[in-house]
Design a protein around this nucleic acid. Structure first.
Lengths: 247, 247
DNA sequence: TTCAGACTTTGACCGCGATCAAGGTCCTGT
DNA sequence: ACAGGACCTTGATCGCGGTCAAAGTCTGAA
């Protein structure tokens, strides 16, 4: 599966002394920088389990940011609705991802459950206090944020792509990657979001997304089991499609 | 390029996601959260002044990230060159911005001086050590990073816009904003970057950028003094253009 | 000052994908 | 099981903007 995007350091498995991957408390991907059980439990102590039904809002943009959420199960989309009526999805989040980042004490975007969701909710006050008292924990948070930032830039790259077909290809690779780093089976890719959501994420119309998906299916690069489950038949071809950027 | 005034406004904003890390000198996201002179001096102690000529590279993607840079004067662009030959600019940075984001110990993008640049260079090793020993400093870094993330999402929003005209309008507003928060005069907007750079940032062709700029000029929304200096004549109209997103 | 190279502007062409529209499929609640 | 709504597919049309091309302008070095 190749790195979908050469901007990602090749051989990430590596030794870098830095940065972690998803989830503050259970950094998958980053051998070395792991929280001690003690630290994890300190986090657990200020957390409470919360459930959201499909379609439920975790928080809205502009609200006082009084908690952040560590997803346990389900899928969440974070979005913005700029003036003018546009609707833009800034990210999809899965188990072990953390959502609810804020600036100036307010959430900078809104988050909605795409499927039923369970998550640990931790009050920012308690979290802040905890962070201040634990430099290592704080450092992990910084690593996590850097990673997010890198991710955001990758998203921007996706948006700047030319053809919709490329974007869709890249998107699928991202999902596959995401599943892989979460340790899930990548035989089949799970698409909990609607075509419309995908469109709002990659910057295209839902019709164009639909057409692209079907085109890939017709060319036998993909095979759909149903609307929300795809198998990648030809990784090489998908890679080629995703990286050709001509408009 | 200028003079740096000794006392700076709270809050410096770059256009685009500011890469990295510890934005230290002035934590923007948190009004009131300012470093003590003592802390500033501790940072100063590990810094050294560096100069880069126009066109010079501060660092390249993939290099071992052994320092981050706090800009004093001049303009820097951070970019990625994904496979396929595309070229995408991730952000523009000005005085007081910090560049040099890394993941896994390597820079995730490259940075080039658009004008002559002077910057404080801080070795990451020393910085890390400092952060670990100073929770407040670390906390400030987190605030800064959150803000950067927000900024990155705003960039993504810009890229997802429909019309090129809107993107250009939005870009100009961002620049104006950036100048304003930096405490500079906003009578006139300074565009140190080339049309081609703007295009690579907003996701369009340089010709389209050129045309949009001229169109705005023709409609008397803008007035160019020369290629790199514009005045916004009609803010309301620019706003309207920037927020209309139909494609 | 002059010249070369880099940057910008302008023009013409045309294809991709947004939009509008309509029909089909899935899924949820009753 | 059924109905209604949400979601998806497919078709047709059309304009924005990417691409190619060429001329104009600015800048820096000699």
């Amino acid at each position: 599966m190749s790195d979908q995007n050469a901007d990602r350091p090749v051989g990430s498995r590596g030794v870098g002394p830095n940065i972690v991957a998803p989830g503050i408390w259970e950094p998958l991907g980053a051998p070395g920088r792991v929280l001690t059980p003690q630290e994890s439990s300190r986090l657990a102590v200020i957390s409470s389990l919360a459930r959201f039904p499909k379609g439920g809002l975790l928080y809205s943009r502009g609200d006082r940011a009084d908690a952040i959420f560590n997803l346990v199960g389900g899928t969440v989309k974070a979005f913005k609705t700029p003036p003018g009526g546009a609707y833009h999805i800034v990210g999809f989040f899965f188990a072990d991802d953390v959502v609810g980042l804020a600036a100036n004490g307010k959430y900078v975007n809104s988050a909605e459950a795409i499927t039923n969701v369970t998550a640990y909710r931790m009050p920012t006050m308690a979290l802040e206090a905890l962070l201040r008292s634990d430099p290592l924990l704080e450092f992990n948070a910084i690593c996590k944020l850097s990673h997010e930032l890198d991710e955001a830039q990758r998203h921007a790259l996706l948006l700047s792509r030319g053809r919709v077909l490329s974007k869709v290809g890249l998107f699928l690779q991202m999902l596959e990657n995401s599943q892989a780093t979460r340790g899930e089976n990548t035989e089949e890719i799970y698409l909990p979001m609607t075509r419309s959501d995908i469109a709002a994420y990659i910057g295209a119309s839902l019709e164009a997304v639909s057409r692209s998906l079907r085109a890939l299916s017709a060319r036998e690069v993909l095979a759909f089991r149903d609307r929300h489950h795809v198998k990648i038949l030809d990784h090489a071809r998908l890679e080629a499609i995703a990286t050709e950027y001509r408009k």
